[in-house]
Amino acid sequence: MDEIDRTLISLLQQEGRLPQSLLAAETGLSQSAVHERLRRLTASGAIKIVGVADPQAVDLTLLAFVFVGLDRPERDDGFRQAMSAEPAVLECHHITGDWSYLLKIRAATVAGLEAVLTERIKRQPGVVRSHTMLALSTAKETHSLPILPAPKA
């Protein structure tokens, strides 16, 4: 991935619907060259063009972080698969320390969160404990990664 690819990704992270004509002007490429680079970046999985919903607009204002402890490492694969299939779980991270996983969950209500916890997370084989924290407010939440310069050859 070269500096132009990184510039394209950085621009699209700011606004995913930028026209290729603007991307071409920003990078000094032709529109057809931009189109080919975007096709290659998308095909390789380096970038995904998606819409990001506002949680308030879709009534998912409750944000919770849940630490989950599993009894044995052999349970990891099944737990990860179950969390990947659970729509309310936005992120599932295998972590170090006293817990096995950290989940980021969105729900409409406390009752909705409770249902996800009791019916879909705590019932997973091997789950022995959990600890839930509710976010009172969010000072920053982004999907944009800090794009570093291309390594010098």
Rank of each mutant, 00 (worst) to 15 (best):
L60A: 09
D77S: 14
H131G: 00
A108P: 09
D59I: 00
F65H: 05
L113V: 09
T138E: 14
V58E: 13
P73I: 12
T142G: 02
S144P: 00
R106K: 14
Q124P: 01
L145K: 10
R120I: 07
E141H: 11
R72V: 06
H93D: 11
P149Y: 08
A85L: 07
E114A: 06
E141G: 06
L90N: 10
R120N: 09
V127A: 04
D77R: 15
R120V: 08
H94A: 14
G69M: 13
L136T: 11
M83V: 01
F79D: 07
K104P: 01
L136A: 15
Y101G: 05
P125Y: 10
T96Y: 13
L117N: 01
T142S: 09
A82Y: 04
M133Y: 10
D59Q: 09
T118F: 12
P73Q: 10
F67W: 13
V128Q: 10
E74N: 11
D59G: 03
F65S: 07
M83A: 03
K122M: 07
R123P: 00
Q81M: 13
R80V: 14
S100C: 06
W99A: 01
I95L: 06
C92R: 01
T61D: 05
L62P: 03
I121R: 09
R120F: 04
L60T: 08
P125L: 14
K104V: 03
G126D: 03
R120Y: 08
H131V: 10
A88F: 04
V110E: 15
P87W: 08
G126K: 14
L136K: 13
V58D: 10
V89F: 04
S144W: 05
S100I: 05
Q56T: 11
A108R: 04
A85Y: 02
L60E: 02
P87G: 02
I147T: 05
A115W: 13
A135D: 04
H93G: 06
L136N: 10
A150L: 02
Q81P: 01
E91V: 07
A57S: 12
